[in-house]
Amino acid sequence: MRGTLDQVGAWFGFVPNMFTMLASNPTVLDLVMTVQMKASSLLDARTRHTIALAVSEADGCDYFLALHTAGSLKGGMPWRTSSWRGREARSIRSGLR
């Protein structure tokens, strides 16, 4: 299991809390890793992060929005198109009302 978390750390540059939590059930962690590997072979990183950003935005999940924004920026997505930037701007605007 430690090897799996090391692999996750290599992908993201750190081990997201979600994977640490999943490690408490090795079967679930293995399943999630299998899905991740399949997605990696079918879609490039930018596309995967773009999809993840859209889902995170729809779910209203700041944690994953921040995580996938960082991955998208690392993968070359311009800041001006990132979902996190849009949410930050909306939060600021709503606070001004």
Rank of each mutant, 00 (worst) to 15 (best):
L65T: 13
T47W: 07
T27L: 15
V28G: 02
A39C: 11
L43I: 06
F14R: 12
M21A: 13
F14V: 10
T4W: 02
V15G: 05
A66H: 06
S82P: 00
R2W: 00
S24I: 00
D44T: 05
E88A: 03
S94V: 14
A45F: 10
K38A: 14
S24E: 06
M77L: 13
L42A: 14
Q36G: 13
R85T: 00
A52R: 09
N25F: 09
K38V: 13
S40I: 03
V28Q: 08
K74D: 03
A66F: 03
L96K: 10
D6M: 07
M77F: 03
C61D: 12
T47R: 09
T4Y: 01
N17W: 05
N17Y: 06
M37Y: 07
G71K: 12
G71C: 15
M37N: 11
L29I: 12
I92M: 12
F64S: 15
M37H: 13
D6I: 06
L65F: 05
D6W: 05
M18D: 11
M33W: 13
G9D: 04
G60L: 10
P26D: 04
W84F: 04
S82R: 00
G75L: 11
T47H: 09
L73Y: 03
T69R: 02
R90P: 02
M18I: 14
R48H: 04
T4Q: 06
V35H: 09
P78W: 01
V35E: 09
M37S: 14
H68M: 06
G86H: 00
L96S: 12
S40C: 07
V35A: 14
I92H: 11
S82A: 04
L65A: 07
R87A: 08
M18F: 15
F14L: 10
M33Y: 12
W79G: 00
I92F: 15
P78Q: 04
L29A: 10
I92T: 12
L65Y: 04
G3L: 05
D6G: 01
S94C: 10
P26I: 09
G71Q: 15
G9T: 06
D6Y: 05
I51N: 05
S24M: 02
Q7E: 11
I51C: 07
V55N: 02
T47L: 11
V15P: 03
D30L: 13
E57D: 10
A89E: 09
R93F: 12
